[in-house]
């Protein structure tokens, strides 16, 4: 990682750790993943789902000791219009995780594509225990499974709830409510 907020191919590659070898690519890379700068000036990497934990451990080893946020987006009705770096295929779900390096005062954000057929990804909890609740929330709201999460259960919705509210095909106001005195 570099100190500048702009992608720097060489600096990013050099700091990405020896073990995670960057694949040959035209664009800038960090932690072996395509790197872009977002509208908010933050660095955004696009790891593949299968190497997610490997990338996350490299991020941790690089001094990003805090996982500040984990969330997801359902791109069901917004497919194909996203700007993704070359080589990354858009899938229905996208896991978005942010990390902070306190010493360098840096943030990095990872966006991982997760297909609808197999909505499963490795859990960060072994590396970042603080991802516990956040991953449970994503599981609850999007139905994405986190392999290796010690307690993957609903957190905000009731245990017996059916469906995942923040999915785009979960309509708002779809539950009929029976009030007293009505037929």
């Amino acid at each position: 990682m570099t100190d500048e907020a702009t992608p720097d191919p060489e600096g990013a590659d050099a700091a990405s750790g020896d073990e995670v070898i960057a694949a040959e690519s035209t664009g800038p890379m960090a932690f072996g993943c395509p790197l872009v700068a977002s509208a908010d000036g933050q660095l955004v990497i696009h790891p593949g789902r299968d190497e997610w934990l490997l990338v996350a451990s490299a991020i941790l080893a690089d001094g990003f000791r805090m996982c500040i946020d984990v969330t997801a987006v359902d791109f069901l009705t917004f497919q194909g219009r996203r700007e993704l770096p070359a080589g990354i295929n858009a899938e229905r779900y996208e896991l978005v995780a942010s990390f902070i390096n306190h010493e360098r005062r840096e943030r990095i954000r990872a966006r991982v594509q997760i297909s609808a057929d197999d909505a499963t990804i490795g859990s960060l909890t072994n590396l970042y225990p603080g991802a516990d609740y956040l991953e449970r929330e994503v599981f609850d709201m999007f139905g994405i499974n986190f392999e290796g999460h010690p307690d993957l259960s609903r957190i905000l919705m009731p245990e017996n709830w059916e469906g995942h509210p923040l999915r785009k095909d979960f309509a708002t106001g779809a539950i009929p409510v029976q009030f007293k005195g009505t037929n």
Partner: peptide, 18 residues
Amino acid sequence: IEHNMATDAATELHLGQV
């Protein structure tokens, strides 16, 4: 902030506070 963990073996998965 002490930098006492995760200094080596980036491929080691369980280097966090497992």
